[in-house]
Design a protein around this nucleic acid. Structure first.
Lengths: 236, 236
DNA sequence: CGAAACCTTGACAATGTTCAATCACTGTGG
DNA sequence: CCACAGTGATTGAACATTGTCAAGGTTTCG
């Protein structure tokens, strides 16, 4: 992979030329078709994974077999950095392509060397990790104080890029079963809650397309139940 | 404050002598009585806060007035580092002493200078932030797949320090109203769920003291509903 | 002692899950 | 080209869990 590619990514843009060169030698690019499992347990704990394009589902399984979604990664999001400081951790997680997807991977141990030798890179990692922490704090908050309807409305507002527009047309980024799971509810609950939300807030559904009468009306109904103020900058 | 004090904290132990000296000049130590509000909104966004002793509640308010607990900080935990890279963020949060508490504070902008000038310190911050991210991932998982009873059981196992012992005596670290809120449920739900848990798992309650017949029995009933394997290393 | 906070309990309402049935859509193989 | 299986999505009914409201008991502390 080429050095200038890394120079353009948010996470590595501030890295030194040396780091960029090493990255270009070590990173391995992969493509996967929708549905493919990307990491097995053994790989996961010593692999850093960066999404170039497409969507990826990161999930775990509870001991009694229930699937839990840890994250859904889109372009320029990444995972596995936790293992930089926890090399022998047995935090099994799985990654699956939910669209066709392009990624690159790095082995954790050379990444650890890069980090320890490049202060600017470490600062970037710290910055993005702190941002991620904020996102997770918000997720906990939403699971605690929002109903299913409110969580769906909030998600819609976030992917609408928080425009104030009217008659906005919007694609759901992935299927409803997955979205339900991402928002911490069952598919049936999602279906019913979305229908209710639409009835209340002047939205019509057509498959995976939403027609939203007025974003601001929606925000007025939803954003009460959150510590942030519309338009917030939360990511998808 | 003395340099060797910072040298002994987990977060700053790897800092350079220069950093430690600057810290000792800039950090301000404070004591608060149980119940005191420690930060107002204006201070929060440019203050880093480190707990020396006692417990602290970090919380936000949703627009419609509901309180949400973001975290409960105990000795050697801290907050506010998010603002290092988001200096003008208006993420209002509040901090309140839930026991008598000792803390020290740093202004964000000198802390930012320390971080940018001390690679080892940045690595420590990154390490602790990544650990925190894992903890939050676990919290989301628990809110998603565990019932109230299971969340309480899981909490008890974590503060039991995961010993396998029998006839373990355990103090709840803070009052039940707060604990309920921390675990994402109402006080009434907590009361009922704890009673059920005790009936199921050979535990007796006496005020804030729990007598647990067998930790392992409890773990068998609870840890099914989690992606980690008992004994896990999750913190409080 | 008395007020305030903490905690528990009961009755009931609201919310979300489970299970089963059904329908629409897609891609496959005959 | 059609039959068919499989996935995704929706709906209804019964049920489980959690929240709400009201009341009353207990503990703490000035």
């Amino acid at each position: 992979m080429q050095e200038f590619f890394f120079k353009k990514t948010p996470l590595f843009s501030a890295a030194t030329p040396d780091t960029l060169r090493t990255l270009s030698q070590l990173a391995k690019r992969h493509s996967y078709k929708k549905g493919c499992l990307i990491l097995n347990n053994k790989q996961a704990s010593h692999t850093f994974l960066y999404v170039i394009n497409g969507f990826l589902k990161i999930f775990k399984e509870s001991t009694n077999g229930e699937e839990v979604i840890v994250d859904i990664l889109s372009k320029d999001h990444h995972c596995g950095e936790y293992f930089i400081f926890q090399p022998n951790q047995d935090e099994a997680y799985h990654a699956q392509a939910i669209t066709d997807v392009e990624i690159f991977t790095l082995q954790i141990s050379p990444l650890r060397k890069l980090i320890t030798g490049d202060h600017q890179l470490t600062l970037q990692f710290l910055q993005y990790t702190l941002q991620k922490q904020q996102d997770l704090n918000m997720e906990v908050e939403h699971l605690t104080i929002q109903s299913a309807i409110q969580r769906i409305g909030c998600f819609i507002l976030r992917i609408s890029e928080l425009s104030h527009g009217q008659n906005v047309k919007l694609h759901l980024p992935y299927d409803k079963v997955l979205l339900a799971s991402r928002l911490g509810m069952r598919a049936e609950t999602f279906s019913r809650a979305l229908a209710k939300l639409c009835a209340q807030c002047d939205i019509t559904i057509e498959g995976d397309i939403l027609h939203i009468g007025d974003i601001h009306t929606l925000a007025c109904n939803i954003c009460l139940h959150c510590s942030k103020i519309f338009p917030c900058q939360a990511r998808d």
